[in-house]
């Protein structure tokens, strides 16, 4: 059985930013759906936790939101990346890649490789 794990808030925020960066404006459900698809249904026990993160990002100025019609023609709140959000995404991405690379190197190193 696949075990689901809750994502950490910071990671979730990064995923939200990336999703909006790739797909353009989306509502909350769309963002959750997309993250679920990419992570292979592995993440997210409670999709509701997405909303406090969205609010936080909005208050930080990284994303902006407005009402718009959803697929079934009801009102939904659409989120989009702002210019500040774009910058934030870039720098977060670099940070993440650097960290990942370092961690990866640690896992690759074997005892005999060390001088």
């Amino acid at each position: 059985m696949k075990q689901k794990k809750d994502v950490r808030q910071g990671t979730l925020a990064l995923m939200v930013l990336k999703t909006l960066g790739v797909l353009g404006p989306l509502h909350g459900y769309g963002i959750a759906r997309r993250i679920e698809q990419i992570s292979g249904d592995l993440l997210f026990v409670n999709q509701g936790t997405l909303y406090p993160v969205l609010l936080r990002l909005e208050q930080e100025g990284a994303i902006a939101s407005e009402w718009g019609p959803s697929e079934n023609n009801r009102r939904a709140r659409f989120y989009r990346l702002t210019r500040a959000g774009n910058k934030l995404l870039d720098s977060e991405k670099r940070d993440w890649e650097r960290t990942a690379a370092i961690i990866a190197r640690f896992f690759e190193v074997k005892a005999e490789d060390l001088p």
């Binding site: 509502h27 909350g28 459900y29 999709q47 909303y51 959803s70 079934n72 009801r74 709140r77």
Partner: peptide
Amino acid sequence: RLREEMEEHVALQTEE
């Protein structure tokens, strides 16, 4: 706003 967003979320998921 939150209630409305979550209701919409549930509605979309239900349709799915």
